[in-house]
């Protein structure tokens, strides 16, 4: 069976005054039907740019400079502007990080849902309204018919994110990109939203690309995981395997730097330094200057992204 989403050698470059900055550097992955791929990494490692590249929402000075992204065999990068507009919000939808600011404050929730439904499902105003209310009910918004006429400031943070999800799912997308959908929510709401998310995915059989820096969330929602660092792939494989026995030092360091239930320690481990700025990127492995297992060749040669088992790949000369 062909995967629903197939990304090959994606490269997105920002042409800045200081020189071109490769935010995403030759990323490849695929997602099958009803499967969830989690993309993890620190801030600034290219997770969101990857998603925006697929949505074709990269604005100047940024540009997708290489690669292809097939959605059901159609290359998204080759579509014309009207064609991509009919895919966006229809077959392919996206949920954003900040429910506070992602909704238009001067339009009602209903209006914002309707314009999308009318466009993609070609429904009349009345049918679109019914569909919107049905979706609001589906994501567990109480008294949905009244909420339909509300503005975003009249909803709580959790409700807004539910409304965002309802909006994204309203036109039966086959592929959903969730860009840190729970980061801005408090923990109890986070749990509710994740549960809702999983239920809906099972029901609607969507392929999901779930972006987060929270490994706990990844282990809950995703089937496989892709670890990114400085715009490049470090490690990929089935989520449980990667999280329990990481092979790339970066993955291991990420896992070690989070607190664990039942283990009392004085100081959490950290990864020294931060993701390097584009012009400071090491010549060899991008992680070499922060890596505890760095070897001499790491400084000069970039490790290839290769299979270590049939389902797992890493880019490292000195794996764990």
């Amino acid at each position: 069976m062909n995967p629903v989403v197939d990304v090959k050698d994606l490269e997105t470059t920002f042409f800045l005054k200081s020189g071109p900055f490769r935010a995403v550097n030759r990323i490849s992955y695929s997602i099958n039907q009803a499967e969830t791929l989690g993309i993890v990494g620190e801030s600034g490692c290219g997770k969101s740019v990857t998603s925006f590249s697929l949505m074709r929402l990269i604005d100047r000075p940024g540009k997708v400079t290489h690669g292809q992204a097939l959605l059901n065999g159609k290359d998204l990068f080759k579509l014309s502007e009207p064609e991509i507009e009919s895919v966006r919000g229809g077959q392919m939808a996206m949920i954003f990080q900040e429910p506070m600011t992602a909704l238009n404050p001067v339009l009602t929730i209903g209006f914002q849902m309707n314009e999308q439904i009318e466009k993609h499902l070609k429904l009349t105003k009345k049918d679109a309204k019914d569909r919107a209310i049905e979706m609001l009910q589906l994501v567990g918004i109480p008294s949905a018919a009244e909420r339909y006429d509300n503005y975003s400031h009249q909803l709580s943070g959790g409700m807004r994110q539910r409304a965002m999800i309802a909006m994204a799912l309203s036109c039966n997308p086959q592929f959903l990109i969730a860009d840190e959908p729970t980061t801005a929510l408090d923990v109890t709401i986070q749990a509710q939203i994740l549960e809702l998310f999983q239920n809906l995915q099972e029901k609607l059989k969507m392929s999901v690309q779930f972006i987060t820096h929270d490994l706990g969330v990844i282990s809950e929602v995703s089937d496989k995981v892709l670890v990114m660092y400085a715009g490049q792939m470090c490690e990929t494989g089935p989520t449980q395997e990667v999280l329990t026995s990481p092979r790339h030092p970066y993955t291991a360091a990420l896992i070690e730097s989070r607190p664990q239930m039942g283990h009392r320690i004085d100081r959490l481990k950290t990864i020294e330094g931060s993701v390097p700025a584009p012009h400071e990127l090491p010549v060899g492995c991008p992680f070499s200057n922060r890596c505890s297992r760095v070897k001499s060749e790491c400084w000069t040669i970039k490790p290839a992204f290769v299979n270590i088992t049939p389902t797992r790949k890493i880019a490292c000369f000195n794996p764990l």
Partner: peptide, 14 residues
């Protein structure tokens, strides 16, 4: 604003 990106992500025309 973020909601501009949302609107574009919904497939709204320019």
């Amino acid at each position: 604003n973020d909601f501009i990106r949302t609107a574009r992500a919904k497939g709204m025309s320019a």
